[in-house]
């Protein structure tokens, strides 16, 4: 066997497939080679390159928490060539995986603080990993608040987990849907995420805010957080620039001198402020 190279993926088998929302699926993947699986280490916030042989590679975050051993999860929406190829796969089929790449959420630094997670639509998956990671070490953090919004009730992902979080007394979950997206029996909020954050008005004192969602949501959420008294250093987000290699070679994800794949994807607002608006 000739030596491996960084472009060669691990082979993963699809263990389960969960339909999260229309065209949105979660794969639970396990390493075909157990040894590789045991040596694979990652932290919350990191991403990987997933591929279908013949269908190409695509970048998504690792949606499962490193505290949950034995498998990896990814959630994707069927939009392009790779996600189309992925969505044709069934349980037992093979997916290629390279990674983990990118930086991590500094969850150790957050210990002893309140956490405010704000996510919109299909951007909950990038945050799910860190959410579970902190929930699994619940005792190390103070209040955990999750604000999650989607266009319609149907578009909410991880419905089972939302239920679990909702039922837990130690997690404050607020779900919202855009006006018009509610069903008759919808019990959550109705309104856009920034508005709801404003309404909920979480305490900025000793709190870390982690924001993830479509650019427009992020754009309107930052000012709300600022208004509530969050400092730029305490606001985190992850960028989703286009990538091919994942390790700082292919040239796509440059934002100024920063490589989102290496220096990111996790950035604080204060870091973002230093970067040119190229994301």
């Amino acid at each position: 066997m000739s030596p491996s190279n960084i472009y060669v993926p691990y082979l993963m088998e699809i263990e389960t497939i969960t339909e999260e929302a229309p065209e949105v699926r979660t794969f639970r993947l396990k390493f075909k080679n157990q040894e590789e699986g045991e040596n694979f280490k990652f932290s919350a916030g990191q991403f990987a390159e997933y591929s279908v042989m013949g269908g190409g590679e695509s970048t998504f975050c690792i949606a499962s928490a490193p505290t949950r051993k034995g498998y990896l999860e990814c959630t994707f929406r069927k939009t392009g060539r790779v996600t189309n190829a992925l969505s044709k796969l069934e349980v037992g089929d093979t997916v290629g995986l390279r990674g983990p790449y990118g930086n991590v959420f500094p969850i150790e630094e957050w210990e002893g603080k309140n956490l405010l997670y704000i996510a919109g639509g299909i951007a909950l998956p990038p945050m799910r990993c860190v959410i579970w990671n902190t929930i699994d070490k619940r005792e190390k953090y103070k209040d955990i608040t999750i604000v999650y919004g989607a266009r319609t009730v149907n578009d909410l992902v991880y419905k089972n987990e939302l239920k679990e979080w909702e039922e837990r007394p130690d997690i404050n979950l607020i779900t919202t849907v855009d006006p018009g997206g509610q069903t008759p029996d919808w019990k959550g909020e109705v309104g856009f995420v920034p508005t709801i954050v404003d309404k909920v008005a979480p305490n900025a004192e000793n709190t870390i805010a982690i924001v993830c969602g479509p650019p427009i949501m992020i754009k309107f959420t930052f000012p709300v957080l600022k208004k509530l008294g969050f400092s730029d250093e305490n606001i985190f987000t992850t960028l989703e620039n286009r990538m091919k290699c994942g390790f700082g070679k292919c040239g796509r994800c440059n934002v100024g001198k920063y490589y989102v794949c290496k220096d990111g994807p996790v950035f604080t607002l204060s870091e973002l402020n230093k970067m040119p608006a190229e994301y």
């Binding site: 472009y7 591929s51 042989m53 013949g54 269908g55 190409g56 590679e57 091919k244 290699c245 070679k249 292919c250 040239g251 796509r252 440059n254």
Partner: peptide, 24 residues
């Protein structure tokens, strides 16, 4: 200049993953 793209080419399940020049 080293920008590149990664592309798959396959036929009937057999194929190769290629790194091709690209441009910013």
């Amino acid at each position: 200049c080293t920008c590149f793209d990664i592309q798959d080419e396959s036929k009937a399940g057999k194929g190769r993953r290629l790194r091709c020049w690209d441009s910013c």
